[in-house]
Design a protein around this nucleic acid. Structure first.
Lengths: 221, 221
DNA sequence: TTTAGACTCCCTATTTATAGGGAGGATACA
DNA sequence: TGTATCCTCCCTATAAATAGGGAGTCTAAA
């Protein structure tokens, strides 16, 4: 294999130390070359404005702009990039969501470092890759695979929340009561309660704790 | 420097991929040798039962037994091990706590991989090391340094919670109400409420959301 | 044996959160 | 000009959480 045919990889994770680690691991791989890395979603988009890569290793939980948003942007742009999602959470729902958003692989951070090379090679060839622990969930809850790559209705994402809902969600996660939130946003407690209701409904959780957990997992704090 | 004088390092983090990464990074360091690694606190203690290392790189957030617990155990055993804490959170409180528990360095995961070698070398010589972002907080909120290494009163850790409190905390984080928790644990709702109160008090948070956030940050789910 | 901690349950009372509904004003879009 | 979405606020009512107190049992340690 020629040097020019190396798989060009971009790594995105808010933990620089993890990026460095992955690069070090991938250094042992002849066919793989890390051509870029970013610590948040905004930087990923900026990078891809001017550069190209064959595979994007993408963390879901990142500040400024998270992995979900990055995928959505790429989808809007009609950009076809092979993506391996790197996540601490093997949340079934998350897996389904990112697959719908065009991701091709899913790698739990707790799996061994060697798997990342496998994952990259797989998706670079158009295959899909799922680390142990997520595989069974996928196939049991998803009928087709390639087929759903384009669709993007239903499913609840951060972006399905309105600005105000998102704002209230954050404040709820900061342990604030409806009264306190109302004061801070200069709206009535009733209005805050309305947002609480719509959040509970949209995110399909049972109570404020569920809302906070959603916020944490999706790094919208 | 002779090979026998290499700094022996044990790495503990629940993300195997991060361990592999650190090992790869440290491979470039002549003076450092990774002699062991663990994915939870229990395994760390088990390993140190039969082995020795000069430096322990320790993640705070680990399942089964967290980093705090590991430090406490070592302190109880009177075992003097140089510890570099690896954490996603540069929480000032956390820094102070782990210093009291005998840690010698504090490395935020978001800092560059190269710093980990610096940190290891520093603490192996008895020095302390703090990655950028935590330094100022330390010195502004802590008078002495070496002096406080032995003390261990006050401060709230997971371990200051009783088994039952911890159990209830988990269930609260799973979006369960007091009634539901009572049913699951076969105790009355009143009892669950008692635990709620003591949790709110011990962890110094305002409501159930605060409890859940604490649980997330300390990975006790 | 005293003491302390952990676990259990109860009381009263207030504050918050959840559930379901309606509704007006603004804006943007077809 | 409808239509839709968002933001705002209200009503009623129940469920749940928070706050502060007391108190009994059991076990393990001093």
């Amino acid at each position: 294999m020629k040097v020019e045919n190396k798989i060009r990889v971009h790594i995105a994770d808010d933990h620089q130390i993890l990026i460095d680690g992955i690069i070090a691991v991938l250094n042992n791989e002849e066919e793989i070359e890390v051509v870029g890395h970013s610590v948040n979603g905004k930087l990923v988009l900026d990078w891809f404005e001017k550069n190209e890569a064959d595979v994007l290793v993408l963390d879901i939980n990142m500040p400024v702009l998270d992995g979900i948003e990055v995928l959505k942007k790429f989808q809007e742009q009609g950009r076809e990039i092979n993506v391996v999602i790197l996540s601490s959470y093997d949340d079934v729902k998350l897996v389904k969501e990112v697959l719908k958003l065009g991701a091709n692989g899913f790698l739990a951070k707790k799996c061994a470092g060697e798997h990342i090379a496998e994952a990259i090679k797989s998706v670079s060839q158009g295959d899909q890759y799922f680390s142990k622990g997520v595989q069974k969930d996928i196939f049991s809850s998803l009928s087709g695979r390639k087929e759903v790559k384009k669709s993007n209705q239903d499913g609840v994402f951060i972006s399905s929340l309105t600005d105000r809902e998102l704002e209230v969600l954050k404040l709820i996660s900061y342990e604030m009561s409806s009264r306190e939130i109302g004061e801070k946003l200069h709206i009535s407690t009733s209005t805050v309660d309305t947002y609480r209701k719509s959040l509970l409904s949209k995110l399909n959780v049972k109570n404020a704790v569920g809302l906070a957990m959603y916020a944490v997992r999706n790094n919208i704090l």
